[in-house]
């Protein structure tokens, strides 16, 4: 399934062209499984498309008919509020039909395997399946089995590409560029799919990435992904443009990785003081949901550095872009047709 992308030149009245002539105009992927398979021009295309689409959310009538007649299944094996709603809103704003399945409402509770569930879904011929699953590689397995496109909405500790894309978008929006931006990611790098996708995406786009956190949460050979390791967070924040925090997940970590939330908060929680060492105009990001008082103090979360809510808003735009690029762009279409 090849989605051909036509530049949406009449997206916003009065503004014409959003792309340089040399930019790619095609997005030839069936699935979005991770940041790994995306090229720099493709990432730029997604971000540019998101920029065009972001305006739709700001309108009175937040809907365009672009994906009318297309169906998107949100298949969530793990609890999720933010990502699931974000995909749902994105699909609805593009007029796709959406269907939500969760581990508790699907036949998985009756012992059906992932592949069987997927084959059954396939028989109903959806255009896209958005999958969140606790096992790394589950979307990859699904992608081989079904015709529908697969969007990885988070697989185990592997990847969460749309989160990385919305983070890239937010950085570009706030700082005007990604290349050369200095980013530090603080938290449980080992068990974070957000960290993994961001590391791959950011380094690909030319950002300088440092990771920080307790040594128990640092995977072996992380440097091989092109990042620097600075365990002390205060030191790691020095001279950075972006401070990206990860949610400390009690449900994922045994007590072996860190002794207590209190200890984590006092040594690794991001405070206003620590931020003094960051570059002027630095931004603080967090994929949510926040553990206020653990990885981030309330002052920082609600303070001027924080772009956390912008991330959420941008999430919808970026996911619209991904949906559109994967299943929307039949030749001759444009995003705003029929308006």
């Amino acid at each position: 399934m090849v989605a051909q992308y036509e530049r949406p030149s009449c997206l916003i009245e009065g503004k014409g062209v959003f792309f340089e002539e040399s930019a790619v105009t095609k997005f030839e992927h069936k699935d979005l499984l991770g940041m790994g398979p995306l090229s720099v021009p493709e990432i730029n295309l997604i971000l540019d498309t998101a920029e065009s689409l972001k305006a739709i959310s700001a309108r009175d009538i937040k809907k365009v008919p672009t994906l009318r007649g297309k169906s998107v299944v949100n298949f969530f094996y793990e609890p999720s509020t933010r990502t699931r709603i974000s995909f749902d809103v994105a699909a609805k704003q593009l007029s796709a039909d959406t269907l939500s399945l969760s581990a508790t409402t699907s036949s998985m509770v009756k012992g059906e395997t992932l592949l069987d569930t997927a084959r059954n879904l396939q028989a109903m011929r959806p255009d896209l399946i958005v999958l969140r699953h606790p096992s790394s590689g589950a979307p990859h397995m699904l992608a081989k089995e079904v015709e529908a496109g697969i969007i990885n909405a988070g697989d185990g500790i592997n990847e969460h590409p749309t989160q990385a894309l919305l983070d890239l978008y937010t950085i570009r929006e706030k700082l005007g560029r990604i290349h050369g931006v200095k980013v530090v990611i603080i938290g449980d790098i080992s068990h974070s799919r957000v960290a993994r996708s961001n590391i791959i995406g950011l380094t690909k786009m030319g950002a300088e990435v440092t990771v920080s956190g307790p040594p128990t949460m640092m995977p072996v050979g992380i440097e091989s992904l092109g990042v620097r390791v600075t365990p002390d967070p205060a030191q790691a924040v020095q001279g950075k443009d972006v401070v990206m925090l990860l949610r400390i997940q009690l449900e994922r970590q045994s007590k072996v990785l860190f002794p207590s939330m209190r200890e984590y908060a006092s040594f690794f929680g991001l405070t206003t003081e620590m931020l003094q060492g960051a570059n002027e105009g630095a931004i603080v990001m967090h994929p949510g949901p926040l553990n206020r008082g653990v990885e981030i103090t309330p002052e920082v979360a609600d303070g001027p550095y924080s772009v956390i809510l912008d991330q959420v808003a941008n999430g919808v735009a970026v996911r619209m872009a991904v949906l559109y690029l994967l299943i929307g762009g039949a030749k001759g279409d444009n995003v705003d047709q029929g308006r």
Binding site: G137, N158, S224
Partner: peptide, 15 residues
Amino acid sequence: HEGVVSTRIGLAGIP
């Protein structure tokens, strides 16, 4: 195996 590949593809490692 716990190593650069497990780190890259997000699978829990056996050292």
